[in-house]
Design a protein around this nucleic acid. Sequence first.
DNA 1: GAGTTTGAAACT
DNA 2: CAGTTTCAAACTC
Length: 643
Amino acid sequence: MQDSPVFNYINSLSPIRPVKSIPNPHQFSTLNFTSPPSVFTSPHLTSSHKESRFFKTHHPSPDPTILVQESPDDSKSNEEAAAEADATTEFNIDASTEMEQPQIVKYDVKETNLDETTDLSLVPYASPPRKENGSASEDAPGMEMYDNVQGKNETPDWDRLIADSSEFLIFSSPNDSEAFRCLMMQRASPSQAPSVMMPTMQPGSINEPESSNASPYGAVSVLHRGIRRRCLDFEMPGNKQTSSENNTAACGSSSRCVVPSIGLHLNALLMSTKDCKTNNTTHDYSCSEKYQVGLQGSSSTLQETLDQTETETREDVPVEPTLEELHLSSPKKKRQVCLVKLEAGEGESCKRCNCKKSKCLKLYCECFAAGVYCIEPCSCIDCFNKPIHEDTVLATRKQIESRNPLAFAPKVIKSSDLVLETGDDASKTPASARHKRGCNCKKSNCLKKYCECFQGGVGCSINCRCEGCKNAFGRKDGSAIVDMEAEQEEENETSGKNRRAKNQENTEVYLMRKEESSALPATPMSVYRQQLVNSCCLNNNTKKPDNNWLTVFGGGSSSSGMFNSQYTRKPEMKSLETVAEDGAEEMPEILSHSSIDNVNAVSPNGKRVSPPHLDSSSSGRRGGGRKLILQSIPTFPSLTPQH
DNA sequence: GAGTTTGAAACT
DNA sequence: CAGTTTCAAACTC
């Protein structure tokens, strides 16, 4: 069996093996960290490359550069464009391939515009800007992919992701062979090609013949087209950055460089997004917090994989206007929103720290904790959390992770699973999500943001050591006070003033959550993620029943803490297993974002949400985490609808 | 905006 | 592991 191609393929995906990761200077050295199994990561990046090569033969794409340049010029006849494409393209051109070209062109145009207008200085991301064709393709693929992905909803295909990434690559490095490969990959997904063509292609162009072929996919193509447009609108900023700098954050002023581990994928997402506001905000709120990016440094590989998945999931979000925009008017609100986002994981990009003594190299620093580099908006002093000090950052991060592998993991996790695992707790705690480690509040009554549970928009659980818990999202004792009225009544003791403020706060949180939840569309990817998470969790559980939060995750549903990506992981876990678990933990957050469950958890009404029950399917997932992972990874591509 | 409060993170 | 200190966000005025 080992000799069989299938086995070989699986091995190639295996996280255990050192995957040929594309060097991404921007990210913290995920690999360096005691990162959890690369199981998840390998499939994404590796597969993408592999596929790109694989498709290469299939899909020769015209020279992207040419297209880009020409794109602005609409006057050119289709024939001319086709002719150019042919000339440039050395490979055989499939009709499908060409079809995409038009879109690419559009992107390019927008990007150029954005670049002109956009302030690159804002892009903190230290990502070493590689403008060279070759280098760009290698470094940024992941990040760029994120950007594109965000705008898309329907089909989270790997091919698609690759294709998306290819587009970016093209922008940055038209000449790069890698970029071509990517383009080819795009072709791999039948649905995409047609969709792409539809928009730009015109009759008479070279593509025409293929367009006919595409007809079957007409509907799909249309959808994609719409998606793409969204990406352009919202993501363009990021793209532009990408073109200029591979890794620049997209969030504009708020954007940050992503640190590889936890926030890495978040950062990527952020980068991709034009404004943190737009996509990230919505996502964060709706998703888990603090979904975060959840991938932390420790579980670098996993995180990467997750990140990609996340990106796909997020594809849906981009279109909608984000909360940030709504809140932008007031700095204060903006800040809150950003924080929320941050916690959610993606929002992190929007975080701004104000560190004075920690040099932004400790978890005190929100940016550092979020796995992102500090950016302009930060008011930190003697900041070392910058790309320039990447080595220091990585070393510090590593050190922290060595002390606590979960230090960078999301702190909030969905409790639905918890219920399943720890039935008692679930019944006690109304909220669907819980803080992984629990809070330790003494004076705030878990009614202020001092409380991580409250901040994360989750109720307190038995894991909390808080005193006088009155968490509006769910008390430690299990009573849910979500209902504002109920809360008020209970807190009669508190001054009306305080109460009012509190209510306001809660209301904001609720609203935010609501928005998030509403904004989050369930995507196939999310489902897939959940499965992965579940599998991972299950594994973890089997391995370490001790970990409460792990157990919780075992439920399979992860909550994205809408506001926090605060899963705190138990420090004890240090072995590989632990790492794997970490990765699994993180996974949940990501999933939670996309998962519909979050909505329930978030329900502003404060009504108790019936704990989600594991489906038969979920139960079926249970099995060796590793095994599941390996199996699941290969399936990723399959998820993508190629029909 | 300065000062205070708070609780997590870090340290012992 | 518990106690203490440090730190920066959250909060108050």
